[in-house]
Amino acid sequence: MIIIGEKISVIAKKVREALANRDPKPLQELAMAQAKAGAHFIDVSIGPAEENGPELMDWAVKVVHEVVHKPLCLDTTNVKAMEAGLKAHNNQWGAPLVNSTSNEPERFPMMELAGKYNAKIIALTLGKGSIPADAEDRCVIASEIMARGMEYGVPMENIFLDPLILQIATMQDQGRQAIRAIKMFQQLNDPPMQTVVGLSNISNGAPKHVRPVINRNFLSMLLYEGLSAAIIDPLDKDMMDTVKTVEMILGKTMYAHSYLEM
């Protein structure tokens, strides 16, 4: 599974302050720790960044790439900031991942950027108005997004369909619908479409001690259905052990007594 390390997020106070003060150290430490723990992409979330968005993203991409030679997942709703990030990204370490587009018109330019910069892109199956009711709804939205990808010259293998993970505490059936969607998304193309989730949304609103249990078990079910990537905390050892164990049981990696230490 492709691991997208989620720790550099504007939601975290430490990161928010570092971004505001242009202090590279906290970002670089988080990036290095996540890369060491096995992250394939490092998410760089700067939020909407309405002031100085492009300059902020340009700075963040460069300071992270100074210490980590991995592709980055550029996370902002600000289109200009996204483009600045794509320009600053060092593609020598792999193509960047745009986070994200959806079926909402204000997110279409993100797909256009992915085509222009030959980037990979996360596509949330979320349309105008209400949230998708079930897996079938998500597939309809996914098809529209895929058609738009073709229009903008984004190859299907560069699109990661995201079923939109909703909180189980208030919408219990949506967890099951997301699992079904992961299976159905893959059938929308040959070779199968890639899929991704923002995992921890599933347990939003649940008590703190319950959240990791829900997250890990949900992830193992998604992986069984063929999930390709997840935005998770690679520093969470229990989470990484779950990933390694499921991949081993599914035969994607070879068993050895020390497989958890690899």
Binding site: M254, Y255, A256, H257, S258, E261, M262
Partner: peptide, 14 residues
């Protein structure tokens, strides 16, 4: 044994 072969290589690297 494939699994023991891998295990020995892991132990050596460790």
């Amino acid at each position: 044994d494939v699994n023991l072969a891998k295990q020995l290589n892991i132990l050596l690297s460790q």
